[in-house]
């Protein structure tokens, strides 16, 4: 039992890298995704962005991660750390999905909401900030939470380039004990609890942003 407990703690040290990766790539994904979504409304940029997005969605994430970690030093002469390579690769990949989510969210707002704002003489910047975006954010929240959950699970790929995350620690503990079952189950518990936590927080937010308040 004490063996299990010490494995549990040791694998838990991988939590730091997993969470750093998750926050880092979500922030990159959200900012780059927002930029892409806005640029998609510009007619000249749309083809370039479509190509970029289809590449990101059409190739394995493991390949994209390897491309950044193993080939950037050869091309640019800079050796990226495992963490920064992971944040860049996962962040850029997730930006493609977030851009699509945002675009669909903006298109889901009825034209009449824009027209009502114009008719009331509301300036464009305020219309986007106070009328359109609050509704978009509410509509896309479930899809966005889904993306965060996917992102969390995808961070486990960092183990393939030597990142010491939950996954990698569980493999190391398994190798040392000649028994993979318990360590991998422990890693599964960590991921599952994290996902449940994210889902719980999203429910709280959804309830708070519900329109139907008496």
């Amino acid at each position: 039992m004490s063996n299990f407990f010490s494995s549990f703690l040791l694998i838990g040290t991988g939590l730091a890298l997993t969470l750093k990766l998750l926050f880092g790539c979500f922030i990159i994904g959200l900012s780059l995704g927002t930029l892409l979504a806005i640029l998609k409304f510009c007619k000249i940029c749309v083809h370039v962005i479509d190509l970029f997005v289809s590449f990101l969605r059409g190739t394995p994430l493991l390949l994209q991660l390897s491309l950044i970690y193993f080939s950037v030093p050869g091309i640019f002469g800079v050796q990226l750390s495992v963490l920064s390579a992971g944040i860049i690769a996962f962040g850029i990949n997730s930006s493609a999905y977030i851009a699509e989510i945002l675009r669909a969210g903006i298109e889901s707002i009825p034209n009449g909401q824009f027209e009502a704002a114009i008719s009331l003489g509301i300036p464009k910047n305020r219309m986007w900030r106070d009328i359109i975006m609050p509704q978009v954010v509410k509509n896309i929240l479930p899809a966005l939470i889904n993306e965060i959950v996917d992102l969390l699970k995808e961070t486990a790929l960092i183990a393939t380039i030597g990142g010491m995350d939950i996954m990698r620690y569980s493999q190391i503990v398994g190798a040392a004990q000649f028994n993979y079952f318990a360590p991998l189950c422990i890693a599964a518990i960590y991921y599952y609890v994290l996902v449940s936590l994210i889902t719980w927080i999203s429910r709280l937010i959804e309830r708070r942003t519900s329109y139907v308040k008496a």
Binding site: P110, G112, Q113, E115, A116, S119, L120, I131, P134, Q135, K138, T209, Y211
Partner: peptide, 13 residues
């Protein structure tokens, strides 16, 4: 000029 829409278009939030 102000427009009143058939479906009102009140801001739901």
């Amino acid at each position: 000029v102000c427009f009143i829409f058939q479906d009102f278009q009140l801001f739901p939030h």
